Amino acid sequence: MTSRTCPCGLPATYDACCGRFHSGAASAPSAELLMRSRYCAFVKGDAGYLLRTWHPRTRPERLELDPGTRWTGLEILESADGSAFHAAGTVTFRASYRGGELVERSRFERVGGAWVYVDGDFLD
Rank of each mutant, 00 (worst) to 15 (best):
R57Q: 12
T13D: 10
W115V: 00
S106C: 04
L123D: 08
A16K: 13
S30P: 06
L63Q: 00
A80E: 15
G68I: 08
C40S: 15
L74R: 05
V43T: 09
A95D: 08
T90R: 12
A95T: 05
M35I: 04
L63H: 01
G24P: 04
E32Q: 09
T90S: 14
A88K: 12
T2N: 14
R4E: 14
R107F: 10
G73K: 02
H86Y: 10
V111S: 11
C18Y: 01
G48H: 11
G19S: 03
S37I: 02
I76V: 13
G9P: 05
F93A: 06
F108K: 02
W71R: 07
Y39I: 02
C8E: 04
E104A: 05
R62M: 12
P67Q: 08
A12C: 12
C17N: 06
D81S: 15
T69M: 12
T5W: 11
H22N: 01
F108A: 01
A12M: 13
P11Y: 04
A87L: 15
F85E: 15
R38Y: 00
R59H: 01
M1L: 13
L123T: 05
D46K: 00
R59Y: 02
L74P: 05
G99S: 08
S83K: 08
R36M: 04
G82C: 06
T90N: 07
E109Q: 14
L34K: 02
D46R: 00
D81I: 09
F42G: 03
I76L: 11
Y97E: 07
R4A: 13
P60N: 03
G99L: 07
A41S: 10
P60R: 08
G82R: 05
E32G: 03
S83Y: 07
L77A: 08
T92L: 11
L63P: 02
G120D: 06
R98F: 12
F122D: 11
G99A: 06
L77G: 07
F85G: 13
D46Y: 02
T5E: 15
A88P: 09
G68T: 11
A47M: 00
R107S: 13
P7W: 01
E101W: 13
A26D: 12
A25I: 04
C6A: 07
S27P: 09
G99E: 07
A31K: 04
G19E: 04
R105M: 09
G19T: 04
P11A: 11
E32V: 07
P11M: 06
F108M: 07
S30Q: 06
C17S: 08
W115G: 00
R20S: 12
R52F: 01
G68L: 11
E78K: 14
Y97R: 09
L63Y: 00
H86N: 15
I76C: 08
A88R: 14
P11Q: 09
G73D: 06
H22D: 00
C18Q: 03
G113R: 06
T92C: 14
L123E: 12
A26R: 12
A41V: 02
